[in-house]
Design a binder for these strands. Structure first.
Length: 424
RNA sequence: GGACAGGUGGCCGAGUGGUUGAAGGCACCGGUCUCGAAAACCGGCAUACCGGUGAACCCGGUAUCGAGAGUUCGAAUCUCUCCCUGUCCGCCA
């Protein structure tokens, strides 16, 4: 969410940002409306406060007269009239602020200057690592997994529905191995604090990171408790410090969390649905950082490197893609996607998305820090990235390391976790 | 899930419906004193928003005593709903 002051002071900057995302045509009327609502809001505040000041003075005079045993009936009548007028103006103010709030919620973050303008055709591959294995003669991961008995999609459909997976045998152990390998690396080598968050969170938490109210249909909700299953660990971890002022000495703060992630995926039927590439429940290790504004660009590079390192350790070829403004998520100011090569399906699979949200998310979740004693609190910058999402990583591992006989070599770093050097 | 007891400033803690943004204490900051420190004493010490020049300092105003709604000329104080915490009981891995 933007500061409502941008509507007063930086409307042109906002319009340029929308232009770069390619959404100015649709959102220009919204910005115009926001500007006028912002002016209305201030006028109403002045009107209300002026009358409240009168009422306060009036009440004090009533108190004085009563103590002096003087008559105050006339003043009391005056106060009643003021009260009615205040109630009316406050109602008007409330509806203006509601309207203003929904305007602000419709306006996406403005991307950073180094993000290319335009739609996804302007995305830039900024880096490539490793040599993609040729697709000739290699099988897709679902065939490998079926041969080795790693997933059981049929029974998953029976017990939960389509879009779920039961991992079995080496597949189940692979999930556990990836979780430990990722968390251990980030904790021990990259200095992240390990966090194990709840998977069910309340409405305020979902609102703090922007899943609600707009995207309520994308989340699973419980029937009776107004709790939601998290779509990513970003939600509980970013909300850890919601409504707090964090210690500046602790910054930047860095958290790593494994979680199951739950997504209804309404509207994405038929897209990458084969095998385990898009499921309603999947596992992911997530990195979250809180930084001071002047640190966030560098912190974004650092976090992205931490995610990349996981692919390098696993020996999976990948590329880093800088998303153009139009392809950058609503709340993000800059996003890198990491795409790993899956030779069996012959495609680059998105296994990580690393974003700098600047203060957009922090303002909504009200996460601040005080730069120095006596200074005003400022909003932190929040960043997060997957490192990594399991299912697509598993698909790439199986396809990249497959042997002609249907077995799969285990990369060195996973051997201690998996207890074997070949899945057979 | 049930029964009690609570939620007041960074912390502790007072508060009869009317100069209470809120006593007092602790912590913190500045000063006096001291060679220096401690002690003592003096002073300061919340946040947000609106306006005064869309800079600083400053000034005026409004709001905030868990949250929201209500009663009232006026609410930390009365009423209702909700949330949270503690203790006991129940249930449970």
């Amino acid at each position: 969410m933007h500061d409502l002051r941008v509507l007063r002071d930086q409307a042109e900057w906002l319009r340029e940002g929308l232009q770069r995302r390619g959404v100015l045509d649709t959102l220009a009327p919204t910005v115009d409306r926001g500007e006028s609502l912002e002016a209305d809001r201030r006028a109403l505040i002045q009107a209300v406060e002026e009358r409240k000041a009168q009422r306060n003075a009036n009440s004090q005079e009533v108190a004085r007269r009563k103590r002096a045993k003087e008559d105050a009936d006339e003043l009391i009548a005056e106060g009643r009239a003021l009260g009615d007028e205040i109630a009316r103006l406050e109602q008007e103010l409330a509806s203006t602020e509601d309207a203003l709030h929904s305007v602000l919620l419709e306006i996406p973050n403005v991307t950073l200057p180094d993000v290319p303008a335009g739609d996804e055709s302007n995305n830039v591959i900024v880096k490539e690592w490793g040599t993609p294995r040729p697709s000739d003669g290699v099988k897709p991961h679902w065939e490998i997994a079926s041969h080795l008995g790693l997933f059981d999609l049929e029974r998953a459909a029976k017990i939960s529905g389509s879009g779920f997976v039961v991992y079995r045998k080496g597949g189940a152990r692979l999930v556990r191995a990836l979780m430990n390998f990722f968390i251990d690396s980030h904790r021990d080598e990259h200095g992240y604090e390990e966090v194990w968050p709840p998977l069910l969170v309340n409405r305020a938490t979902m609102t703090g990171t922007g899943q609600l109210p707009k995207f309520e249909d994308d989340a699973y909700a419980t029937r009776t408790d107004d709790l939601f299953l998290i779509p990513t660990a970003e939600v509980p971890v970013t909300n850890l410090y919601r409504d707090e002022i964090v210690d500046p000495d602790a910054m930047p703060m860095a958290f790593v969390a494994y979680s199951a992630c739950f997504r209804r995926e309404a509207g994405s039927a038929g897209k990458d649905t084969r095998g385990i590439l898009r499921t309603h429940e999947f596992d992911k290790v997530e990195l979250v950082r809180y930084a001071a504004p002047e640190q966030s660009a560098e912190q974004h590079e650092l976090l992205t490197r931490h995610a990349e390192t996981m692919l390098e350790r696993l020996g999976i070829p990948y590329r880093r893609k800088l998303l153009a403004a139009g392809d950058t998520g609503f709340s993000s100011a800059k996003t890198y996607d990491l795409e790993a090569w899956a030779p069996g399906v012959g495609a680059w699979l998105e296994v990580s998305s690393c974003s700098n949200f600047t203060d957009y998310q922090a303002r909504r979740a009200n996460i601040r820090y005080r730069p120095a004693k006596g200074e005003k609190p400022r909003f932190v910058h929040t960043l997060n990235g997957s490192a990594l999402a399991f299912p697509r990583t598993i698909a790439c591992l199986l396809e990249h390391y497959q042997n002609a006989d249907g077995t799969v070599n285990v990369p060195d770093v996973l051997r201690p976790y998996l207890g074997t050097d070949v899945l057979r």
